[in-house]
Structure formats: C-alpha cells, structure tokens
Design a protein around this nucleic acid. Structure first.
Length: 440
RNA sequence: UCCUCAGUAGCUCAAUGGUAGAGCAUUCGGCUGUUAACCGAAGGGUUGUAGGUUCGAGUCCUACCUGAGGAGCCA
C-alpha cells in the first residue's frame, strides 16, 4: 500500500467516532469464526475488541484465504469501514477490505491459551500471555484506575509524593520477615517492608507526604490474600491525630471506589462484579474499638482472647453485618509496632486503626498515630529489644520540633481484589511474586 | 514451618486392580451472520519421579518432586 492510500489509523475504543469511515486498526487476532464463504475475525488491540467481517464474494480470493487461515494472536493490521451492528459484540463492526499480517502464529505451535477453560497453574506459567485475555485486561485496567485515583486524591489534598528507599538497613517493624540483600559490604541491607519511618522524616519537612511503591515481606504465607512483593500507598501527616488518620483513610477509600464506578463500569461488567455493593460504599464507615470488636466476635462464636490479633475468619465475621469497610481502633499495645502511640488515658491500648474491607477481603488499611515524645520512644525501643543505634535518625525526629503525627498504609492489591470481587490477589498485579512462584 | 488436596494427550478432565478415553486446540473436508459457532474425519500418551505389593497397577503402599488451598504471620 502506498503512503498516499493509507487510511487513518485508530484504536478500537475510538470505533464509535468513525462510523461510516474507512480506517486502519493494528492489533492481534483474538478469535476467528468462519464458514465457507464468510469469516468473522475478532480483533483485539489493548483498548477493546472489534468484530470484523470478511465476505468471500466481495474480496479477492487470496485475501479471503489469508483471513480464513489466520491463527489466534497473530499480529495483524485490518483496514475497512466501520459500521453500527447490533449483532456484533460492542455494537460496531468493521467490513474488512484489506489485511496486513505482521506475524502469523504458526499452527505447529499454536497460541497456548485457548478460549476454553484452563487451570490456574497453567495460566500462571503463561502469565505473560494470560494478560491478553479479557478478564485480566479488565482487572489491570481497574488497577491502573485505582492507582491513579489514589494519587489524584492525595495530590489534591496537599500531600507531596516523596519516594522512600527500597534498600533499608533496618527493620521498620518486625525483624523476621525481611529479604536480605547480599551486596553491600559495610552493613546488612534488606528490601523495604514499609516506607513509614522515612515518611515520618519527610512529613516533618513537607507536612503531608506519601510514598507509593513496592514492598517486600518474607512471610511464608500461602493464601489468597498474600504476595511476597506488593504495592502499598502510605500517607503520613504532621500535626495529626488518630482521628485525622481515620478520616483520610475513609475519604480515600470512598474516593477510589467512586472513581472506579465512574470510569470502569465496562471492566466491572466483564468481571461480573455486583456494582450495587460498591455503590453502597459511602462515609461514614462503622467504627468500633478493639474491645468492642472482641465482644462482637464473642457474640458471633469466635474464641478470640483479648490481646490477640484477629485471624482471617475474625476479619470476615467483623465485616459481615455491615456492607461497608469497618474501622477498628485502639488495639492492644503489646501486639502493635514499637512506634505506635499508646492511648494516654489507657496505655495498654495503642492509637492504631485497621480498616477491614467488606465481603471477607480482610485488612486493607493499617495505621495510626506515632509516638512523638523522645523518652517514650526510647523506652518502647528498649522494651522491644531493638538497638537504639539502628534508629538514631528516627529518634532525632523527636529531638528537633517533634509534633503529634500519624498515617497509614493501604495495600493496593487487596483493594483491587475487593473492588474487582476476585478470589485471589495474584490476578491484581501483572506479574505476581509468591512463595513458590517467581516466573514469568 | 505445619495441615489438606492434586499431578493421565498442548489444555480441561474421565477411566470397579483387567485392551488409555472424551471435549477443546491442531490438520483435512463441509457450511453466507457467526457469538467459547457448528457438522464429519485424522494425528496426538514413558499416566510427575523412583521403588514396592500383585498373575496383572493410571488405580493399592512407601519415599521424593512439583503445584494448589488453608493455618500461623501480615497489607
């Protein structure tokens, strides 16, 4: 085809804007249905899916034959006229006039993911190809929407994005769940499990800050809620109390759900998500103390003891009566990290809050108010058996203009799994990293 | 780390201890409106690995390997 004859190149999502025009669309063959004299190649281009029609009597013999011989996921550029067509999925159809085959997938080694069912092991082994399927495409479009909504909310509420390091010399919280990096000679270095301690430093410099990036937990967990590498957004605010933290977490969640409902209805439909459950997500969320939560759990038959953390089934039980995320605060100080501010009126509980997602998706947010008094922080570090010298700079923050402050971490993949209504977080990230799976 | 379950054709799965099977995918043929298209035919197997019991093992036993779900722990 000479450059002069070249048609305007569009993407499938724009098809409705070009009805009656002859256009060129680059993409991949999603599927092909054919009979003797008519063929329906279905084109996929990353923005949508479009059915094309090739009629034998209206095309050169060789062109019709090459359409009939197309194989799944061959890369092709189609040219033709766009038409409204109620029989076609999506409502538009392209009358094929020309076909350029960039690469024809050979039938000796056909595309492995067929339109029929596959097991999870096979799909995860072929994750690099699985990403092309409709469901995965929908999930990852929603992931993008959620990430963007999180940034938009924080950016428009005075937060500054300040990235925190992935290599860290000390544990932020626990000490047993760190990935060690064997490279640095002068000291032991690990992959971050939270950017929070650094956020406290940047919050004292910028007021309201956040970090949004990957975190790593070497927990030998093997459940539908766990990844070894996952993304977390962590806002932190100077001059903030537990109540401020709870309010921001609530507003952020409401905003994110609203954005997905506004912009990703089609993707939710592909996932067959019950959107009425999402439309219900409005402030205020139910709030309860840890004490009240334990009492409620006892009523529901749980055998949880005061002082213990919630198990997976406890989290589900707590959420089941409300169709909203539930905020639980004032956990026992003993089970929380050393930096959590004890309640001044009741030091055995800490000013921390967890947000539990509805429908059994578990904890999506954890946070609270941090200790701002130097003496108290030093005492807590000692009580946890931690070396003061590892936290020298962190302790410094309490020496130079310390203020009450707090923040939280929100797990991106758990949010996506909840909003999409997925069984497992492994589908919420392009290339999941799990206990027994690091490829592709 | 512990508990439970699974491994048979490229994929999803059948097969009472007695000749290894189907659907999809692939190839060939048919079909002018298909919607995971349909109809007919063909090719395709070291039943995860190694031992054992048995006249005979995909099936029973032991160990190992690989994976899945869950517990603990966590977002």
């Amino acid at each position: 085809m000479t450059p002069a004859a070249r048609r305007p190149r569009i993407s499938i999502v724009q098809a409705g804007l070009h009805v009656g025009e002859t256009v060129e669309i680059p993409g991949w063959l999603y599927n092909l249905r054919r009979s003797g004299k008519i063929a329906f190649p279905i084109l996929r281009d990353g923005t949508g899916i479009l059915q094309c029609v090739a009629v034998k009597s209206q095309l050169p013999e060789s062109l019709f034959e090459s359409v009939k011989g197309l194989t799944q996921e061959s890369s092709i550029i189609v040219t033709g006229r766009i038409r409204q067509e109620p029989r076609a999925p999506g409502g538009y159809e392209l009358d094929l006039e020309n076909l350029e085959i960039f690469q024809r997938v050979p039938e000796a080694e056909p595309y492995p993911i067929t339109p029929k069912e596959h097991g999870i092991d096979f799909l995860l082994d072929h994750r690099h190809l699985w990403l092309r399927s409709r469901r995965q495409h929908a999930v990852l479009k929603i992931r993008h929407e959620i990430s963007r909504a999180i940034r938009d909310y924080l950016d428009s509420h005075g937060f500054t994005l300040l990235d925190t390091p992935v290599f860290t010399p000390a544990a932020c919280e626990g000490t047993t769940t760190l990935f060690e990096v064997n490279y640095f000679d002068h000291e032991k270095v690990y992959l971050t499990q939270s950017g929070q301690l650094y956020n406290e430093a940047t919050a004292m410099a910028f007021g309201k800050v956040y970090t949004f990036g990957p975190t790593f937990r070497a927990e030998r967990s093997k459940t539908r809620r766990h990844l070894t590498e996952f993304w977390m957004v962590e806002p932190e605010m100077a001059y903030a109390t537990l109540e401020d933290v709870k309010q921001v977490a609530e507003e952020l969640i409401v905003f994110v759900v609203g954005r997905v409902l506004e912009n990703r209805r089609a993707e939710l439909a592909v996932l067959e998500r019950d959107v009425s459950k999402l439309e219900n997500i409005k402030a205020p969320f139910p709030r309860m103390s840890y004490d009240q939560a334990v009492e409620l759990l006892h009523q529901k038959g749980s055998e949880i003891q005061w002082g213990a953390d919630f198990g997976g089934t406890d989290e589900t039980l707590l959420g089941e009566d409300f169709n909203l995320p539930v905020m639980v605060d004032r956990f026992p100080t003993a089970i929380k990290a050393f930096y959590m501010q004890p309640d001044p009126e009741r030091p055995e509980v800490a000013l921390g809050v967890d947000v539990l997602a509805p429908e059994g998706y578990g904890e999506i947010v954890g946070g609270g108010q941090r200790i701002h008094e130097l003496d108290l922080l030093l005492r807590r570090i000692d009580e946890h058996g931690l070396p003061r010298e590892a936290f020298d700079w962190y302790i410094d923050l309490r020496r130079f203009g310390t203020v009450p402050h707090g923040g939280f971490g929100m797990g991106l993949e758990r949010c996506i799994a909840w909003i999409c209504g997925l069984e497992h977080v492994r589908e919420t990230i392009p290339f999941p990293r799990m206990l027994y799976r690091t490829r592709p």
